[in-house]
Amino acid sequence: MDTNHKDRSKVYFNPYFGGVLLGMVLLATFYITGRGLGASGAAKSTVVAVVDRFAPEHAENSGYYSQFLSDDNHPLNTWLVFEVIGVLAGAFLSGAISGRLKLKTEHNPKITNKRRLLFAGIGGVLFGFGAQVARGCTSGAALSGAAVLSLGGFLTMLAIFGSAYAFAWFFRKLWI
């Protein structure tokens, strides 16, 4: 086996180094654009664009989609969509350098692939729903919010981590 290759793929940044770099990226983002980072916003724009494409009247009459539609811009023409295109490229680059590009499902060996994917899907649905309620996810609400001392940002951050800890016991068999 190619053991060197495998070892390299498990080497990550020192977390404090990664944290300082992430903090500097976020600081630069505020300095340049006056706003923070985000992730779920691009998924929202995608959903709005798809619904607007296939059911434009429904999208315009909806109390939610209509908030993100304008006559001037395509729903995908938003800052966060461009940022997320960058995120995919940046993560791909990092994975390529470290030898982590591989099509696979990562899971605890005690559970099946299917089970992991089922719960990944459920988790995604819940996270997507929750991120709309809180107007942002871990990036947009919790991290970017907390960095500018937003009360809502701090509350969402505490709620996300608190809730994950509170439910961790019930889902322990998925992970350990």
Binding site: A39, S40, A43, F119, A120, G121, I122, G123, G124, V125, L126, F127, G128, F129, G130, A131, Q132, V133, A134, R135, C137, T138, S139, A141, A142, L151, G152, G153, L155, T156, M157, L158, A159, I160, F161, G162, S163, A164, Y165, A166, F167, A168, F171, L174, W175
Partner: peptide, 19 residues
């Protein structure tokens, strides 16, 4: 902010990721 966060936390522990 709180309710959304609680739902996201449940999504975090079941899905293993955030967006």
């Amino acid at each position: 902010a709180i309710v959304g966060g609680l739902i996201m936390g449940l999504g975090f522990i079941t899905g293993g990721f955030c967006p």
